[in-house]
Design a protein around this nucleic acid. Structure first.
Length: 520
RNA sequence: GGCCCGUUCGUCUAUCGGUUAGGACGCAGGUUUUUCAUUCCUGUAAGACGGGUUCGACUCCCGUACGGGCUACCA
C-alpha cells in the first residue's frame, strides 16, 4: 500500500516569529496586465503592513514564450505604480538570483532528489505520443491509473532506464501522485478546499530541456526564498493541490507558505476574464504602461499614456476585489497599507469598471498639488511644441484641474492657454454678435491695454463697470469675451484666463476676435 | 466531459442570524457657476432559484441554475 502522508498543521509558531516575505512572480511573456498589477499591489500592501519583504521573481522557465523587453516592462510598471520591490531582479537581495533561468541548475538537483526518494520518476513518453493518447482517450491524463501503460522508470527495467539516462534520451521527471488521498488546502480567502489525489495527474516537474515547470520552480524558490504567504490569482487554485504534494514530498510542510487566491478581473462587458485584446476591443487601457511593438497593431497605450495618475490607478485597483468596510473610497497608499487585510478580499470575480477608474483619476487630479500637476503637464506641453515655464504650467493646472479627466486634457482642452485660438464657436458668435458692439469691444481693448496690475478680479470689476456704462448687460458681452479668449464656451473663468494670458496677449486676442466678428 | 471556485442595485461593494439592506460609479432631475466643469441635494436600482436549519436568514447547510478557472514537457 502506498504510504499516506497527511497534512499536519504547519507549526503556527513559525509564522508568528517569521517575518512576512511575499513575492510577485510574473512571466516575461509580454506586457503586464492590470490584473497582474493588482496581484502585485496586494502583495505589496500586505508586505508593507506586516513590516515584511516584497520580492520580485521573474519566472522565465518557458523559453518558447519569452518576450524580449517584458522583464524591463514589468519592472518599469511596478515602479510607476509605486510598488517598488525590496528584493528581486534588479533590486538585489540575499536570496538571489531572482530570475529562474539563472537558477536552472538548482531545480534539476531537487527534481532528482525527489526521484531518489521515490516521490518522482523519469518518464520518456514524447509529447506526440501523449497527444495521441489524449486524442484517442477523451479523459486521458497521466496518473496512477495510466502510468503503468506508459514508458517510464516504473514500467521499464531499471537497467533500461539507466541506459536511456546515460545515453541522454530526452525525458522528463514527473511527480508520483499517490491515489486515494485527500488533500486539504487552507486558503486565506476561500477557507478549506479539498482535492482527491486520484483526480490529479502526475505533473511534469522537470522538462526535457532541463528547465523546471512552474510547479517545481515555484515550490523550490518559495521554499529557498522563505516565502511565507503566496498571494496569487485564482487560476492557480486547482494546481495548489500539486503544490501541497510537492511540499510534502520535499518534507517542507512545516514551512509551507499560506495561500490566498485572488478573484479574477472580468471583462468590462460580456463574459470571461479580462484579456489583452479587450483593450483594443473596448478602446480602453488594460495595461499600466503602453507597449511598443514592431507592428503598429501590436502596440497599445497604457494607463500612463492615457493620462492616469499612478495613485488613481492603484486606488482603483485596490478596491477592485477588496474593501475594508465603511464608506471611504479615496485612500492614500499609506491608508491602503494600514487598512489592507486578506480576509476582506472578495471571492467573486470583479468586472473591470472603466467609468470608476476615470472617476478616481478625476478625483486625484482635482486633489493634486498644482506644482505636482505641472510636472506631469510639462512633457505633454513640450510634445506640442509649447515653450513653457513652471509658473505658467502651475497656473494652467490650477485653472483646468476641476474640468479634466486625463492629464493630456490640460493641453488639449486648454490649448488656448498655450497658443492662439484656432477657431471661434460660430453659434455663440451668431447669437451674440451685433455690429453696434464694435465700439464696445474697442473700448474694452483700450481698457485692457492700460490696465495695471493685470489681475483677474480687478479686471472683472472694471470690465463689468464698462459694460454697465455702455448700457449693456454682462450677458451681452461676456460670452463674446470668452469666445475671444478661448474660442469656445467651455473653460475656466474668463478673467482668470485673461490674467494668465497677460495684458498684451489679452489685448491681442480682443483685436483678432473683433476682426473675426466683424467679418462674420 | 472531469475537477475546483464563485453568485447582494447595470458596475465596484458594506452587512460577518434580527437593518426602512448602507456607500460609491453610472444614469436622471435640481443647485451652484451669467460658460464648461466642480460643489451640493434628490431620485434610480439588489440578496439567482428551490429546499432545509432557526423564534428569526442576504448571512449557516443541501440541491439546481448560471458564471468563472483549471484540465500542456504555458505560466
Amino acid at each position: 500500500m502506498p504510504s499516506v502522508s497527511r497534512t499536519h498543521p504547519a507549526s503556527t509558531i513559525d509564522y508568528l516569529t517569521m517575518s512576512v516575505r511575499v513575492r510577485f512572480a510574473p512571466s516575461p511573456t509580454g506586457a503586464l496586465h492590470i490584473g497582474g498589477i493588482r496581484t502585485a499591489l496586494y502583495n505589496y500592501l500586505f508586505a508593507r503592513q506586516q513590516g515584511g519583504t516584497f520580492i520580485l521573481r521573474i519566472e522565465d522557465t518557458d523559453q518558447g514564450r519569452y518576450v524580449p523587453g517584458a522583464e524591463k516592462y514589468i519592472i518599469e510598471a511596478l515602479q510607476w505604480a509605486g510598488l517598488t520591490p525590496d528584493e528581486g531582479v534588479e533590486f538585489g537581495g540575499e536570496f538571489g538570483p531572482y530570475r529562474q533561468s539563472d537558477r536552472k541548475a538548482i531545480y534539476g538537483d531537487y527534481a532528482r532528489q525527489l526521484v531518489a526518494n521515490g516521490k518522482a520518476y523519469y518518464a520518456f513518453d514524447t509529447p506526440e505520443e501523449l497527444e495521441q493518447r489524449r486524442a484517442a482517450e477523451p479523459n486521458f491524463t497521466c496518473n496512477a491509473a495510466t502510468r503503468t501503460t506508459l514508458t517510464n522508470a516504473l514500467t521499464l527495467p531499471a537497467a533500461e532506464t539507466q541506459r536511456r539516462l546515460d545515453a541522454g534520451v530526452p525525458g522528463v521527471i514527473r511527480l508520483l501522485v499517490q491515489p486515494q488521498e485527500e488533500i486539504h488546502v487552507q486558503d486565506l480567502i476561500r477557507g478549506e478546499v479539498v482535492f482527491q489525489s486520484s483526480e490529479l495527474d502526475d505533473k511534469v516537474l522537470l522538462k526535457a530541456d532541463g528547465m523546471p515547470t512552474y510547479h517545481l520552480a515555484n515550490i523550490v524558490d518559495d521554499h529557498l526564498m522563505q516565502i511565507t504567504h503566496v498571494i496569487r490569482g485564482e487560476e492557480w487554485l486547482p494546481s495548489t493541490a500539486h503544490h501541497v504534494l510537492l511540499y510534502r514530498a520535499f518534507g517542507w510542510t512545516d514551512t509551507m507558505p499560506q495561500f490566498a487566491h485572488l478573484p479574477l478581473i472580468l471583462k468590462p462587458e460580456g463574459n470571461g476574464k479580462l484579456s489583452k485584446r479587450d483593450g483594443a476591443k473596448f478602446g480602453i487601457p488594460v495595461f499600466p504602461l503602453g507597449w511598443v511593438a514592431e507592428k503598429e497593431e501590436d502596440s497599445f497605450p497604457g494607463f500612463r499614456e492615457t493620462g492616469f495618475l499612478p495613485q488613481a490607478m492603484t486606488n482603483f485597483l485596490a478596491l477592485l476585489g477588496w474593501h475594508p468596510g465603511g464608506d471611504q473610497e479615496i485612500f492614500t497608499m499609506d491608508e491602503l497599507i494600514a487598512a489592507f487585510s486578506i480576509e476582506h478580499i472578495s471571492k467573486g470575480g470583479a468586472r473591470f469598471d472603466y467609468d470608476k477608474a476615470k472617476w478616481f483619476n478625476q478625483k486625484y487630479i482635482q486633489a493634486a498639488d498644482n506644482a505636482d500637476l505641472a510636472r506631469y503637464i510639462r512633457p505633454l506641453a513640450e510634445a506640442k511644441g509649447y515653450k513653457v515655464t513652471d509658473a505658467l504650467l502651475t497656473q494652467v493646472a490650477g485653472l483646468m484641474k476641476e474640468r479634466v479627466t486625463f492629464l493630456p486634457d490640460f493641453v488639449e482642452q486648454g490649448y488656448y492657454l498655450f497658443e492662439p485660438v484656432r477657431n471661434y464657436d460660430a453659434e455663440t458668435v451668431q447669437k451674440k454678435w451685433k455690429p453696434e458692439l464694435g465700439p464696445v469691444f474697442a473700448a474694452l481693448a483700450e481698457l485692457v491695454a492700460g490696465f495695471n496690475p493685470f489681475e483677474g478680479a480687478a479686471l472683472e470689476e472694471a470690465v463689468k463697470q464698462l459694460i454697465q456704462e455702455k448700457g449693456l448687460k454682462p450677458g451681452d458681452i461676456l460670452p463674446l469675451l470668452r469666445i475671444a479668449m478661448a474660442g469656445t464656451m467651455k473653460g475656466p473663468a474668463v478673467f482668470d484666463t485673461a490674467a494668465l494670458l497677460g495684458r498684451e496677449e489679452t489685448a491681442n486676442r480682443l483685436k483678432l476676435a473683433l476682426a473675426h466678428f466683424e467679418a462674420a
